[in-house]
Write a protein that binds this DNA or RNA. Structure first.
Length: 842
RNA sequence: GCGAGUGUGGCGGAAUUGGUAGACGCGCUGGUCUUAGGAACCAGUCCUUCGGGGUGCAGGUUCGAUUCCUGUCACUCGCACCA
């Protein structure tokens, strides 16, 4: 029996309880069926869910519920990215430990997730701030250390004064802290790095194999890695005073530069070093330039990288009184320093070719340096080449380049690279913009870096059997420096090598480290001896469908790819890529702007669930837009979805179903459908099954899947009022509606399924299959066009419509067609069987 | 500047390999039933001078273009002195 009223509060809590108690979503490795690993990016436990979360988890829930009904053995886990600064700030404010705040938030958000009816296997829940988890994060750090992928060095790093910690390059883009938007300053500190650059080439080339990733994300990663092919060429430094020089100039020290345009080598009119270049100080020592250069460098130091590298930053530089020799032309070239040369990229030194590089052109124009064209722009005459108003950066024919004159610049590139190599003055080289991953954080709420500093043995890793290095508890939280340093119990340790007193590393790891391997832990979440077993990860990895926001396109997704490759090379994994397919969902907006606390345009999921229920919330969010697109929130639209669910409910309340309770589970039975309407109804049912299956499974277009079911419901409403309506077919239609809607609105379909007298959970049912034979129609609507314009639509028997010849004959024989054609000449008739006839007349 | 993407009714969006543009939903208009309804149901809803015209704009290919090509404009996102 089905109640008259759709009472979502009762229904949703009832089924959530049943699912929880029956372990409906528990998964084991030994089940039958192909595995499917569906994953949403796990949340930071900020306090409560927002609509972006609801969207993310609803999408994955639809996919995983659908796959489960299709017979896959589905892993659909959830966990918490639980380390991070907000918990520490809350600790300062409330004088409670970060863990208390974090676990409170987790328990509230867990309740919210359950309230949405997302089909998680809660037994696999993972929390990155628990010692059982971060123990293995530390273990991974040590594995990488063993592989030589971890190092410590003093470096100029991005420091956020407000967060009182360093940031990775990826977290300080544009010169502002990703978290708090404070301006980042440069500081020189001893820091821990992971050698992600060892994997630059693999991280880049493996992107080609990720066919299930959006092109946009791959492009972003490619740009971030920034591979460029070029030549590292060496310029010979000339002595301070040439007249004093005795002996062979060719043996002098050399300054390497990196260039992607070795073909412009004869166009070099100066050489520029980054002001921070290590050679600079020595080059000007005891020369008249020493004082001015020192002043120049001092002025630059105050600036952070962002203002230094801003596009509109004025190029400034100075000649430093020295010269060097061009390796190919042998020409004497003045040596400059300038702010536009970056110390971290390439060799920190650049050859200046004003005629063929726009930056050099601007710089040379300002300082009156030589502009010498060496590549002739196609369509120009040589005399013309000197009157440049801007740099010519394209390809053309070589001029002013000695024996290379007359070659195409592309050819000259290779010839000149060969020449440089032949002279022993350099070599071809590939450079990357990607830099090593700085993982040190001077904060408390993170996984401690498991290293010791021993006065006698130096840096010593904590032995594996001493993991985890636990976070101390005797901490006073206040703003300023890393609170861990205030814990004497934590700092002092015993050196495992010499037994002496060693100091513990007080930096913790970037939380991205924790979130770069959580999908591996889900495969084997309770393993106490390993981070994960090879057997389990071999079974589940890689993730078949990953879903999350584009904002993680670089950070999280690149780090995870790196860690998986590194762990594979340590012998712990078989796969080299974590995520087979990636779907980047759009933002949830209100009034055209992303919902955010700052703008005050948030709609609370809790409110929506309270007013309409979780099923309605899920349905709306999936119906309003395809998943990749931004979604405009609309309260009226939510009401529309609520109305639709009620409409389905009332359909199921038809008294005819009560009389035949429990009957008619057989989907494909041929039966003997009687009237035309019934046959048509059957066709609509099977057509809908076909479309919805395709839309969910192949296209991820949940909006059109839902609209197809809405259409079917509309049809069923019309059909059931017809005199000859067949209860069996009606029932089949309702079953199809419920099964097809099951991934979207799990609670209400469970309730109706049970109410209709089918004992088992609807999620134990197989996904419905359509029958090809039911899709056939007896009459087809064919469009009649004259010169491509629609003139008429005619209904024809299928035999005629599906045959090209019969259709053509039939149509051209029609009186109205004769009339349209009349005295004009029929040039051509295009026939698309079953669809359309286009008659071309003149 | 470079790269990627998106432009369709009042709104969110459909149109799967070129073949009925505007499915489905929201909103709006009128109606039925009701003491009432922000419930439910029914009808209508791109523009139109009723010939037609319409998918940002201008061309092209084609019997036929929202779909393919060229150019252009607008917006969004990413990168941005990387030599």
């Amino acid at each position: 029996m089905i109640k008259e009223r759709y009472d979502f509060v009762d229904i949703e809590s009832k089924w959530q309880r049943i699912w929880r108690e029956s372990g409906a979503n528990r998964v084991r490795e030994d089940e039958t069926g192909e595995k499917f690993y569906g994953l949403a990016m796990f949340p930071y436990p900020s306090g409560r869910l927002h609509m972006g979360h609801v969207r993310n988890y609803s999408i994955v829930d639809v996919i995983t519920r659908f796959k489960r009904m299709q017979g896959f053995n589905v892993l659909h886990p959830i966990g918490w990215d639980a380390f991070g600064l907000p918990a520490e700030n809350a600790a300062i404010k409330n004088q409670r430990p970060p863990s208390a705040w974090t676990y409170d938030n987790i328990s509230h958000m867990r309740t919210q997730l359950e309230g949405l009816g997302i089909s998680y296997d809660w037994e696999r829940e993972v929390t990155t701030c628990s010692p059982e988890y971060y123990r293995w994060t530390q273990w991974i750090f040590l594995e990488l250390y063993k592989q030589g992928l971890v190092y410590r060095k003093e470096a100029n790093v991005n420091w956020c004064p407000s967060c009182a910690t360093v940031l990775a390059n990826e977290q300080a883009e544009g010169g502002f802290c990703e978290r708090c938007s404070s301006e980042v300053v440069l500081r020189s500190l001893e820091q821990w790095f992971l050698k992600i650059t060892d994997y630059s080439e693999q991280l880049l080339s493996d992107l080609d194999g990720l066919v299930g990733w959006p092109e946009k994300v791959k492009t972003m990663q490619r740009n971030w890695i920034g591979r460029s092919e070029g030549v590292q060429a060496e310029f010979i430094l000339l002595p301070v005073d040439l007249d004093d020089s005795s002996g062979d100039v060719g043996c002098g020290p050399r300054i390497p530069v990196f260039t992607t345009r070795v073909d412009t080598l004869f166009g070099v009119s100066y050489l520029v070093l980054a002001p921070e270049h290590p050679l600079v100080v020595g080059l000007v020592k005891d020369t008249p330039y020493e004082e001015d250069v020192a002043e120049f460098v001092r002025n630059l130091k105050g600036l952070n990288e962002a203002s230094r590298t801003a596009e509109d930053a004025e190029k400034v530089g100075m000649f430093i009184g020295r010269y060097c020799l061009n390796p190919l032309s042998g020409e004497r070239v003045p040596l400059w320093i300038a702010n536009y040369v970056l110390p971290q990229y390439g060799t920190g030194a650049v050859m200046g070719v004003p005629a063929h590089d726009s930056r050099d052109f601007v710089f040379a124009s300002k300082y009156g340096l030589d502009v010498r064209p060496v590549i002739l722009e196609p369509g120009r005459v040589p005399e013309d080449a000197y009157s440049l108003s801007e740099a010519f950066v394209g390809n053309g024919v070589m001029i002013n380049s000695g024996r290379f004159n007359g070659m195409k610049s592309e050819e000259a590139w290779n010839e000149m690279a060969d020449a440089v190599e032949g002279l022993g003055m350099g070599a071809r080289k590939v450079n990357y913009r990607l830099r090593d991953w700085l993982i040190s954080r001077q904060r408390f709420w993170g996984a401690p870096i498991p290293m010791l500093c021993c006065p006698t043995c130096g840096l010593v890793p904590v032995p594996e059997d001493q993991l985890p290095v636990m976070l101390p508890e005797d901490i006073v939280f206040k703003t300023g420096e890393n609170p861990i340093r205030s814990s004497p119990s934590f700092r002092e340790a015993v050196c495992p090598l010499c037994g002496g007193v060693a100091m513990r590393e007080t930096d913790t790891m970037d939380t991205f480290m924790c979130s770069s391997w959580y999908f591996l832990r889900y495969c084997d979440p309770h393993n106490e001896r390993q981070a994960f077993s090879r057997e389990k990860t071999d079974y589940w990895m890689g993730v078949d469908q990953y879903v999350g926001g584009v904002e993680h396109a670089i950070l999280h997704l690149l780090y995870s790819r790196f860690l998986v490759k590194a762990l594979r090379d340590c012998g712990h994994l078989s796969v080299g890529e974590p995520f087979e397919n990636l779907l980047t969902q759009g933002m949830v907006c209100l009034d055209g702007a992303k919902m955010s606390k700052k703008l005050g345009n948030v709609v609370s999921p809790e409110d929506i669930v309270a007013r309409f229920g979780a099923d309605t919330a899920r349905l709306f969010i999936l119906f309003a837009a395809p998943p990749e697109r931004d979604l405009e929130w609309n309260d009226r639209g939510v009401e529309g979805c609520f109305r639709f669910i009620n409409r389905v409910w009332r359909l199921a309340c038809d008294p005819r179903f009560v009389d035949s309770e429990g009957e008619g589970l057989d989907f494909g039975s041929e039966g003997t459908p009687l009237g035309k309407d019934t046959r048509e109804m059957l066709r609509r049912i099977h057509m809908t099954i076909k479309k919805v299956t395709y839309d969910i499974g192949v296209r991820f277009n949940f909006n059109t899947a839902i609209s197809a079911v809405m259409e079917l419901v509309n049809e069923l409403y019309l059909y059931k009022e017809k005199p000859g309506a067949d209860v069996g077919v009606l029932r089949q239609g309702l079953q199809a509606v419920l099964l097809l809607l099951a991934p979207f609105v799990p609670h209400v379909v469970e309730e109706l399924w049970q109410g209709l007298g089918y004992g088992e959970s609807i999620f134990r049912q197989a996904w419905p299959r359509y029958r090809e034979s039911f899709l056939e129609t007896e009459s087809v609507t064919v469009v009649l066009q004259i010169n491509g314009k629609v003139r008429d639509r005619i209904s024809l028997p299928a035999e005629i419509a599906s045959s090209e010849d019969a259709l053509k004959e039939y149509v051209t024989g029609l009186p109205k067609v004769r009339q349209w054609v009349d005295e004009k000449t029929m040039v051509k008739t295009v026939v698309v069987p079953g669809k359309l006839v286009n008659i071309v007349v003149r």
